[in-house]
Each structure stands twice: as structure tokens, then as C-alpha cells.
Amino acid sequence: MNIFVLPILGGLLIGSAAVILLALNGRIAGISGIIGGLLPPAQAPDKAWRLAFLLGLIAGPLVAGLLAGQSLIAPPVASMASLLGGGLLVGVGTALGGGCTSGHGVCGMARLSPRSIAATGIFMIAGFLTVFLVQHVL
């Protein structure tokens, strides 16, 4: 099979999920925003669908893996120190910047939001530079 078939299929499913969430619940499918609404202070009043979405998010790769006949989840490759530091950067960064790959990168880009286009350009460049430093310089 062409190596781009599954990525394109995956992208179509991700986009469909975003459209369904807007059509039914009127919400943006931004994962960091969905999680953020569950955290204090000022927890969102609509916790139920957020939790249901996250449950589905965990079940999704397991169900797809059963259908595909192979595990789709691979373990982390970074060291524990990188995972802890990287997780902290992702948490602070997405809360400060108001979104991540899904909220800015997919939903915001699709809405042609200037904020999201700027954020996506910046986090892509930061990701490229960080991987270059880690893989080829350090």
C-alpha cells in the first residue's frame, strides 16, 4: 500500500471528527482546550462531553488497531527527563498560546484564523529547530 494512504485516511477521520463536534455540540475540536476546561480554576460547566471525547480519543486507536489487525500505538522514544520537560513545555505553551496541533493546526487553520495560522507556523518551526538540535547538534 502507498505510504500516504493511511496518513490521508487518518487526516480525513480527524477532519470528520472536528466537523461532527461543531455540527452537534458547537465546539472546536482542540484537545488542549478540551482538557483545559476540565482543570481548575474556572472549570468549564460542560465537563461531561469533554470527558466522553477524551474516552473516545483513548478508545479510537485501540478500535482502529483491532480492525487493522495490528497495534497502532508505539511507546515513547525520548528519555524520562525529556518527557517530563517536554510535557511541561507543551502544557505551558498550549495554555499560553490557546491551542495545539488540533485547535490551531486543524480547526483554526480551516477557519483561516490569523492567530491560528501564526501559531501553527511558529510551533512547526520550533518543532523543526528542536528536532534538529536534539538529533544533529547535541
Binding site: I31, I35, G85, G93, L96, A118, A126, G127, L129, T130
Partner: peptide
């Protein structure tokens, strides 16, 4: 927005994980 996106991209590149 800019600082948050930059920090997020660094953490993404360090680990290969974004939140979703």
C-alpha cells in the same frame, strides 16, 4: 500566542507528542 506556540513546538519536538 507567539511565546506559547514556540514553547509548545519545543516540547513537541523533544518528545514527539502533542496533547491529542
Amino acid at each position: 500566542l507567539a511565546a506559547g506556540a514556540a514553547l509548545f513546538g519545543m516540547g513537541w519536538g523533544l518528545t514527539g507528542y502533542c496533547p491529542g
